[in-house]
Design a protein around this nucleic acid. Structure first.
Lengths: 209, 209
DNA sequence: GCAATAATGTAAACAATGTTAACACCGCTG
DNA sequence: CAGCGGTGTTAACATTGTTTACATTATTGC
């Protein structure tokens, strides 16, 4: 007989939609991508399943929103990491430290929120990397620009530099999120990757062969 | 009234189980991970859904088998790539070419079978990389051993070398499978990665700072 | 101010899925 | 050749995503 569960003034949630995304995000963070379902999210939000269809086309779209939300968080996370770098006297070492902070932040996010990270770049197929990861991508480009201005980036490799750096660190982050590496190995490999990337960036680093 | 769909002698399939895994593999290859369902596989195999439960605990296990199957294929694929390298006079360049063939094969598999690749390392959480990718991992270690014997690998980095190489190439492969890079960029970045890895391997390559 | 209307939520059903239980068929072993 | 274990079928069940018809609230135009 259509009895509202919530009393009068709470018939309308007020901000379902955002609340749903947040609930979904937390669900994924704790229990993984497969735990994310319409009915589950509705329950957490204190609402009927059908209500969610006023805010999302279907489950697939909700998943997309969660994925986007995670990419935003990831961007904020690594930016915060970069800003925390204390400025040193040399402009060059500054650029390097800020660049490395991005890589460390990226991997650290994967370590702290493995389930979220695994989901960050789903639903991004067929789109160039620079689009689906707008936030973090911009940060990376800023940092590479800094390196360039300090003369730490060879002109020949400049164009592919962001993709090169991204893919190098991304691979490690994926493995970290899967818990496939011990913490000690994680740090070691990251160190090697960052060193390798910077060496490849450097002018006069004559490509082999 | 329990009328068998297939006539007498075909009441039993003979090799459901393997057939199911193959059907499932092809389904994933063509339509992606989400198209993989018990009922769907049963239909393709010409069998009733419940029949699959004589061979698999549940859908999750079937997925695991498919994932394993893909890892095996990936291993075979990159091994074939390596064997195709024509031996040159210098033992060192030989080792290098064989090593690079592994990386190229890995990325090429991701390009040719993006949906399969995306699924290769699912269900491998919490296990060290050397376990869940046994086949390809062994090939990588063989190759790195060859480099070592040719004096192309610094003792200081030897331990972490396989993980370093893997994660570097893995990141690119993931992006390639997502179609996030143009073909030209793919080749360029792979070139940079392989060069970077080898430079990091090389003795006397004094790590920065 | 207040009726009309849009926005949002509920209840109840539907179709599709994974899964299970009871039964049927086949091939092998005693 | 009787029976038994392995394999497949049927029919049901619980759970999901989704839709439809209805209820409630918020907002807007007069």
């Amino acid at each position: 007989m259509l009895t509202p569960l919530r009393k009068g003034s709470e018939y309308h949630h007020g901000d379902l939609g955002h609340a749903a995304i947040r609930a979904a995000r937390n669900l994924v963070d704790r229990e993984g991508w497969n735990a994310l379902g319409i009915r589950r999210v509705a329950e957490v939000a204190g609402v009927t399943p059908a209500a969610l269809y006023r805010h999302f086309e279907n489950l697939e779209q909700l998943r997309g929103e969660v994925s986007l939300q995670v990419r935003i968080e990831l961007g904020d996370f690594i930016r915060a990491r970069r800003e925390r770098v204390k400025t040193s006297r040399s402009k060059a070492t500054n650029a390097i430290l800020r660049f490395e902070a991005l890589g460390e932040g990226y991997v650290d996010f994967a370590r702290r929120h493995p389930r979220l990270f695994e989901v960050a770049f789903l639903h991004c197929d067929e789109k160039p990397i620079s689009e689906f990861s707008d936030l973090a991508w911009e940060l990376l480009q800023e940092s590479i620009q800094e390196l360039w201005e300090c003369g730490l980036l060879d002109k020949k490799v400049k164009d592919a530099a962001p993709m090169f750096a991204w893919s190098s660190v991304h691979g490690l982050a994926v493995l970290v999120a899967q818990r496939a590496l011990l913490q000690r190995d994680q740090d070691l490999v990251l160190r090697q990757i960052m060193d390798g990337v910077q060496r490849s960036f450097a002018p006069n680093s004559g490509r082999s062969r």
